[in-house]
Design a protein around this nucleic acid. Structure first.
Length: 358
DNA sequence: AATAATGATTTTTA
DNA sequence: TAAAAATCATTATT
């Protein structure tokens, strides 16, 4: 009886055109999926668990502990990321398992039924394809939402602008020290930046940022920075003189002025320069190498003593005049916005700063 | 709560 | 292309 039924079913099938027809579907829509995959891979969500931990972790232990928050934040980020990653993988696995389970289940069912009704292998294949398609769309959704989560995480943790931390005391100390002892040319070289970064427990680009900000802000109104300028200038001045006092014999005094400004364009002010030079040499024995920084420091000290009154009295005015000093003297690390109009009411004690040059 | 500081980013400039 | 200048967004201070 069975064969009869079977053949009948076959006929019906033929008539109702339930048979296979266009089996052309699938797979143009893979562009998006590729994008998601790539991104997940790039973010380290998919791909091998890279717990590489080798990195620049142990930063310079030189001189004092800098907790260095950066790494803390980073590890926080990594923790969250690995959480996402974990979820992603477990979900993915679940889906894959479910998919294969369901597929085998359906196939078994169909095979069983194929005994009592006509089912071509092509139909089974098609069925399997459909199932896989369904599951892969689910997977894609998973990938998409994972991507979203990662992006959110990124914007929250990696965008340093959003989570700014002030530098440690140590870092600002080091940076300011350099800045004020190279006030005439506060452009640290790449090596110097690395050094500073190391000492301060920050990155080189942070050093660069800091100097960029510092220069512009210092220039913008120096009055505000007078205090710390004096502090650091005095500090480094003392250091410098000490150093000089100890051992300078190495260098010959034969490298006088030229050395001082180095790569800096020293527009004019020949006389004032000489002036300062004599001053410095007077204070501290002639030195070749260190001259620059000493001059900077001293400059500050002198400067301060020279016109403390005006500083106190009229900050604005002072600033401007200092500004002028910078322009004329340095001529370079920035040009003062101030017009020459305000320029020195010549003659006053302030003229001390004409020295300021370099 | 208002405002100053400050580190980072973006845009402009030389 | 590096530095200046403008701007943003967060943190500190009052």
């Amino acid at each position: 009886m069975k064969p009869a039924l079977f053949s009948v079913l076959c006929e019906i099938k033929e008539k109702t055109v339930l048979s296979i027809r266009g089996i052309q579907e699938e797979d143009p829509p893979d562009a998006q999926l590729m994008r998601l995959d790539n991104m997940l891979l790039a973010e380290g969500v998919s791909g091998p668990e890279k717990r590489g931990r080798g990195g620049p972790m142990a930063v310079a232990a030189t001189s004092g502990g800098c907790p260095n928050d950066n790494s803390i934040e980073h590890s926080d980020y990594r923790a969250k990321l690995s959480q996402i990653r974990q979820i992603y993988h477990s979900e993915l696995e679940k889906y894959e398992q479910a998919c294969s389970e369901f597929t085998t289940h359906v196939m078994n069912l169909l095979r069983e039924q194929s005994r009592t009704r006509p089912i071509s292998p092509k139909e089974i294949e098609r069925m399997v394809n459909i199932i896989h398609g369904k599951f892969s769309t689910i997977q894609m959704q998973l990938k998409q939402s994972t991507c979203e989560a990662v992006m959110i995480l990124r914007s929250r943790f990696l965008d340093a602008r959003r989570k700014r931390r002030n530098f440690s005391k140590q870092a600002t100390e080091v940076l300011n020290e350099y800045f004020y002892s190279h006030l005439s040319n506060p452009y640290p070289s790449e090596e110097a930046k690395e050094e500073l970064a190391k000492k301060g427990g920050i990155t080189v680009s942070q050093v660069s940022n800091w100097f960029g900000n510092k220069r512009i802000r210092y220039k913008k109104n120096m009055g505000k920075f007078q205090e710390e300028a004096n502090i650091y200038a005095a500090k480094t001045a003392v250091d410098a003189t000490n150093v000089v006092a100890q051992g300078n014999q190495a260098n010959s005094p034969s490298t006088p002025n030229s050395a001082s400004s180095g790569s800096f364009k020293m527009t004019n002010s020949g006389d004032s320069f000489i002036n300062l030079q004599s001053l410095t040499s007077y204070q501290s024995s002639p030195v070749g190498a260190n001259v620059q920084s000493q001059m900077d420091s001293l400059h500050h000290v002198i400067h301060q003593t020279g016109r403390y009154d005006t500083i106190v009295g009229n900050p604005l005015y002072t600033t401007q005049r200092i500004d002028v000093r910078c322009t004329e003297a340095n001529g370079s690390w920035q040009d003062a916005t101030t017009p020459s109009s305000i320029t020195s009411p010549a003659g006053d004690p302030g003229s001390v700063n004409s020295d300021a040059s370099n």
